[in-house]
Amino acid sequence: MHQRLTPATAGLLVLPPLLWAGNAVVGRMMVGLVPPITLNFLRWALAFVLLLPVTASLLRRGGPLWPQWRRFAVLGLLGVGAYNALQYLALKTSTPLNVTLVAASTPAFMLGIGAVWFGQRITRRQLLGATMSITGVLVVLGRGDWELLAQVRLVPGDFFILLATAAWAVYSWLLVRPGDPPEIRSDWAALLMAQMVFGLGWSGLFAAGEWAAEPQRIAWGWPVVAALGYVALGPAILAYRSWGLGVQRVGPTIAGFFSNLTPLFAGVLSAALLGEMPHLYHAAAFVLIVGGIVVSSRR
């Protein structure tokens, strides 16, 4: 039974979008200091170490994780190995505001993927909402200029964040399908660790490929150490826990609206920390994307 939205629960649901927006800004700040795919690997390696003391029993031989290793290997590939690696790659050539706006259209991607792969029926209202959200994404990709969009002058970051959003949509569908052992499903730390165990392998493999493709370097110093501490503890663990508690209290429908705060926080943080000011087309895109999600989710 879901509770009504209280200030405490609202605080729980506001914190993750703020941390996710900070993740995008930090990813942009680390361009030139840490290779993007390596940043993703280091982030999850540190999160693994931080979470290990409370989830060590999950990794024991004969534990509930190993019979489901194929499922968690796929979830780890999409959620840990691919999503943030692609996001950090996108931030090399795109802004945090652009990246978070496109990522905010995930519900529209989920509708399409659900219809094609999972037999989900799409209503007219959902189709209208998805069209509005996708139009908002096109406004971002075209930088508010339809002629520019027609010429398809996309920076690599636009492609990477679209790919990341599609990967997250597939991950979300797989995550809600039944099959997890109760001792993992009911424990947020165990569920996250089950994905991290395999996701670390994927992200390590991708990082090795990044270094093999061309010489890389990490400019070690306090900025890099602080950034790693933030992305591992904040967006990876604290946001995950806060979001889970908030969703448990008020349900995913109400909680979903709070995720749309991420582009707003990203715009404010980008302006304050990076000097990247938002434009009018960002506001138009935000209205279209959020409006589309509202239309889709109404009964």
Rank of each mutant, 00 (worst) to 15 (best):
F109M: 15
M193D: 02
A150Q: 12
V197F: 11
A167I: 12
L127C: 07
W173F: 12
L205P: 03
L205T: 08
G129L: 06
D158A: 04
A190Y: 12
I113F: 08
T165R: 06
W220K: 04
V116G: 10
P178L: 09
L191A: 14
D158N: 09
T106W: 00
A103D: 01
P156L: 12
L111V: 14
P181G: 10
T131E: 01
A219Q: 10
R124W: 05
G142P: 03
V116L: 15
L101A: 12
L127P: 00
E147V: 00
S203E: 07
P182E: 13
V140W: 00
E214M: 14
E147W: 05
V102W: 01
L174H: 03
R121A: 05
G144T: 01
P182G: 12
G136H: 04
Q126M: 13
E183N: 07
F109V: 13
V197C: 15
L148V: 08
G201M: 06
I218C: 05
W188V: 13
W168D: 02
R124T: 09
G199V: 04
E214R: 12
L191D: 04
P107Q: 14
L154H: 09
G179Q: 06
I218R: 15
E183M: 08
A115V: 04
G221F: 07
Q151K: 11
D187Y: 11
I122A: 05
P215W: 07
A103T: 09
D145Q: 05
